[in-house]
Structures are given as C-alpha cells and as structure tokens.
C-alpha cells in the first residue's frame, strides 16, 4: 500500500539575486513498511523535500506541489492545524544534529512527553511510561533517571537516541530521518542505523532516510532516489541502483565510494553544482557529464524499466558506459 505519494513538489526560495528553485518537481513514493533513501550532495534539495512535506520550511521558502497524498489525505490542501495534528503524531522527524536539536532549558522527560501529551491527551503517567519504554528500546540504560536530566548532561550518541525516541513517541506511520548519523562518531553510527532499521521493522513504519552517504543507503534502504540540483535524476530498488546504475551522476557517485576490493585512485566528479537560481532547460548534470551531447540541452525524457527503476537521461541504457568508466 502506498502511504505517501508526492507529485511534482517544488520549493522556491526568494533571494537577493532572484528566485532560487531548490526543489524542481520531485516525485516520491513510500510504501507501508518500506525504507526509501534520498541521496545527493549538500544543497541538492534532499532535506528541503522532507521539510516541505511537513510544511517545516523557512519563512523565505515557498512550496507548491500537484499533490502530496499521505494516508488518504492531501497535505497540499491541509490547514495549518491539520498539519500540526500530523506532525509528531503520524509523521515523526529524526534530526541531524543531536547537539542542537534538543532544547537546552528543559529536561529530557519534558521534551519526550510533550508531543505525546498534546496529541494523545493522556495522563502524564502514561506518557512517562511510554517514554521510559522507548528509552529502553533505543538502548539507553537507567532510563527512568534520564528523564530528569538535561541535554547538556548527555553524550552525542545518547542524545541522538533520545531524538529517535522522541520521533517514535506517537507510533508514527512515517519516520523521516534527516542525516541521522552525520554528526556522530563512526562507532556510534552503525549502532544508530541498526536501531532505526530494527524499530522500523518492528513498527512496520515507512521511513525516508536522507543522507549523502551511499553506504548508509546500501545498508538501510529498500529503494533509493538520487537527487541532483533539485531533481530526482534516478530512482529504483537499491540492488538495481547499485548493480546497474543508469544516470552518469549515480555512476559517478558510486565510483567515489571506497571499495576494499578495488585498487587505484578513488573516483571524483569534476566541476561544480550549477546555480539553482532561475529556470533551467535540459539536463542539470550536462556541465559535468562525460557523455554530454547536443540533445542534453533539450527537455529530458524519463526512462522507465520494469521493477520500478527510472532515470532522467538522453542515453537509454548506460550499462555499456558503466563498464568503460
């Protein structure tokens, strides 16, 4: 069952130099119980896509979309009050930096139970029990005594577990994890990813995991959407993307991944990301693409293959090129 279907999401940001089109017509689907990874470099619009879905955008940003269907509701038509009823309740957010995502002035217990008390209108005792259950579940020892502690008294790994527990308080149908491990030590990263994966399976929730790390995607996601300069350039099942990438950008990204079995120089993509200010025609990647030709300046058709693999390129099948490069 498709729980989330985003159609043609666009996010524009007004700047002094003109309108910056940060997200340019993104389509995204999440099935129930599925983990979808969004990968791309910083500034490609992956976080904005997730924030835009919840209406959590900065004041200067403007969102438009044909449809954002979430559990039989169209979020583009939802009122502010309806959106607040969904946030934290049906959709939980896990933020990137656990050092700043928690309010320094309130205890862990207060911040954990706050959303639950608001959405469920229950007694405090029940909310506290739920918080303790989730702290235990996220691997925090001495859970009950943690509730009266403040964020500055805890380590980064612990705080990220608390941020995760906070997102899970109301048993959301969809969890959005925005770079959940980027700010953490490598040793803690794997534990946190394992935890998110386990909990997702246990709760049968849908997950959108946003990351620039292909390793995270390979470990976590059922499906992947690769974003470049505000567009989804390639999307499909994780195994298919990793085994037979079609878009030159995806191929480039994969060649940048360290691989113990492969010797020689690590790949890199030459050039820089194009400016997002103003409208653009043709392929966004053509300035950095080794296969760019004249047709790349025109509108690009989307190729679709059985199994849900799709990409946006003038070359119908890159498999031959993959071997060459």
């Amino acid at each position: 069952m498709t729980m989330l279907k985003i159609e043609n999401l666009r996010i524009d940001i007004a700047t002094q130099n003109g309108t910056l089109h940060a997200v340019r017509g993104v389509d995204l689907e999440v099935e129930k119980g599925e983990v979808v990874g969004i990968v791309g470099e910083s500034g490609c619009g992956k976080s904005l896509t997730a924030m835009g879905l919840l209406g959590l955008l900065p004041r200067s940003a403007q969102r438009s979309a044909d449809r954002i269907r979430f559990l039989e509701r169209d979020l583009t038509k939802a009122s502010v009050a309806e959106l607040r009823g969904i946030r934290g309740n049906r959709i939980g957010m896990i933020f990137q930096d656990p050092m700043t995502a928690l309010n320094p002035s309130y205890t862990i217990g207060d911040q954990l139970t706050e959303g639950y008390l608001h959405h469920r209108k229950t007694a405090r005792k029940e909310a506290v029990e739920r918080a303790i259950y989730l702290l235990n579940r996220t691997g925090i020892t001495a859970a009950r005594s943690r509730l009266s502690q403040y964020p500055h008294q805890l380590s980064g790994g612990l705080r990220q577990r608390i941020v995760i527990a906070m997102a899970l308080m109301c048993e959301p149908d969809l969890i959005i994890a925005d770079e959940p491990t980027t700010a953490l030590d490598v040793t803690v990263q794997a534990q946190i990813l394992r935890l998110i994966k386990d909990i997702q399976a246990e709760m049968a929730a849908g997950v959108i995991i946003i990351t620039h790390d292909l390793g995270v995607v390979a470990q976590m996601a059922d499906r992947v959407a690769v974003m470049y300069a505000g567009e989804v350039v390639e999307a499909g099942p994780t195994h298919s993307i990793f085994a037979a990438p079609q878009h030159p950008y995806t191929i480039g990204l994969l060649s940048c991944m360290p691989d113990a079995a492969r010797r020689g120089r690590l790949g890199q993509i030459p050039g820089v990301v194009p400016s997002l200010i103003g409208e653009r025609k043709g392929c966004a990647f053509r300035t950095r693409c080794p296969h760019a030709t004249q047709p790349c300046r025109a509108d690009i058709a989307i190729h679709r293959r059985a199994g849900g693999h799709s990409w946006r390129c003038t070359i119908p099948d890159q498999t031959a090129n993959t071997r060459k490069s």
Partner: peptide, 21 residues
C-alpha cells in the same frame, strides 16, 4: 535554532513553541 524546528516537528501549537521553547 534547531530545537525550535524540533518543537514544530512535534506538532504542538505555535504559541506554545514561542512561549515555552
């Protein structure tokens, strides 16, 4: 600050975010 975004993401009313957080 990030924690204000966190508070909004919890779905609590805007006035509470403003006054409490």
């Amino acid at each position: 600050a990030d924690y204000i975004r966190t508070a909004h993401a919890k779905g609590i009313p805007a006035s509470r975010v403003l006054i409490k957080h």
